[in-house]
């Protein structure tokens, strides 16, 4: 099976590199990481490859440092990688991103059977690129997929959708976006990545020119959406502020608001 896995490098959001054992931030880790759902998509592809053979192409669009996630994909078992990187692409929204990815797939992996994407990214969570890529490539598609099996020329996919457990049969070529529930990603050591491909990693960088994309069709200017304002959300109320020793705080809390709390519980709290 010929597979393309679309991977995004996302910033290490504060909550992720947190060590649950010690409660501290894992600051030693690099600043970008492979988006978790994309790791699950890659894992799904690796399992399909192990069972049915084939090749995996990892595809990412991003700044030059995004090459890192391709190296990780290669270290895990992908066969080749494409880094789509061009300053002219900066600021592309999902509409344009899916167009660029589709252009690369058509040009460099035209014989694919399956495209796999993470169902969403931790940095924006729009979940839009996968379904839009399916439109661009005119493919049948299933989003938020949890299990994938190949049966003859079809895929059988399972997913949870709005409280329904669905089993779907999809013709190939097709596209799936993979959820973070089922395909627990295999471990790789960061140190091993460089060693896996010392000099000639099978990674190619593609620019807008390589893809035959005109400037007017990519980046901010081609994106239908515009960000007009960014600000912090402020919701301040006139509130009661309690400070001091925990015991005193708690006494004051129950003295003043015990009725209210007790009311919600359906029990009495003594004053």
């Amino acid at each position: 099976m010929e597979m393309v896995v679309c991977i995004k490098q996302v910033p290490m959001v504060s909550e992720l590199p947190w060590d649950p054992a010690t409660g501290t931030l894992k600051r030693d880790l690099a600043e970008g990481m492979m988006n978790p759902a994309c790791r699950h998509a890659l894992e799904a592809a690796l399992q399909l490859k192990a069972r049915h053979g084939g090749r995996i192409t990892a595809l990412t669009m991003g700044p030059p440092m995004a090459e890192e996630v391709l190296r990780q994909a290669l270290a895990l078992g992908a066969d080749q990688g494409f880094l789509i990187s061009d300053p002219a692409m900066a600021g592309s929204d999902t509409f344009v991103t899916s167009f660029i990815l589709a252009t690369a797939v058509k040009k460099y992996c035209p014989n694919f059977d399956l495209v796999l994407c993470g169902c969403y990214t931790t940095d924006s969570e729009t979940a839009q690129v996968g379904p839009q890529l399916a439109e661009e490539l005119d493919l049948p598609a299933a989003a938020f997929v949890e299990e994938i099996a190949k049966k003859k020329n079809c895929l059988i996919v399972k997913r949870l959708s709005d409280g329904f457990i669905e089993t779907l049969e999809m013709d190939l070529p097709g596209l799936v976006t993979v959820s973070t529930r089922h395909y627990a990603p295999r471990y790789f050591s960061l140190a091993g990545i460089e060693d896996a491909f010392p000099d000639a990693a099978p990674i190619r960088t593609l620019s807008a020119v390589d893809l035959g994309l005109e400037r007017g069709s990519i980046g901010v200017q081609a994106s239908p959406t515009r960000i007009v304002n960014v600000y912090t959300s402020r919701t301040e109320k006139q509130n009661v502020i309690l400070r001091g020793a925990p015991k005193q705080i708690v006494e004051e809390l129950l003295d003043r608001f015990g009725d209210r709390i007790g009311g919600a519980m359906g029990k009495d709290i003594e004053k």
Partner: peptide, 26 residues
Amino acid sequence: KMADVAIVADAGQVCSALIRELKKRI
């Protein structure tokens, strides 16, 4: 800032104190 009552203190300690106090008062 969203809260009606904002308690400036350690979360774990307030939880323990609240458990103790509620046991007395409920």
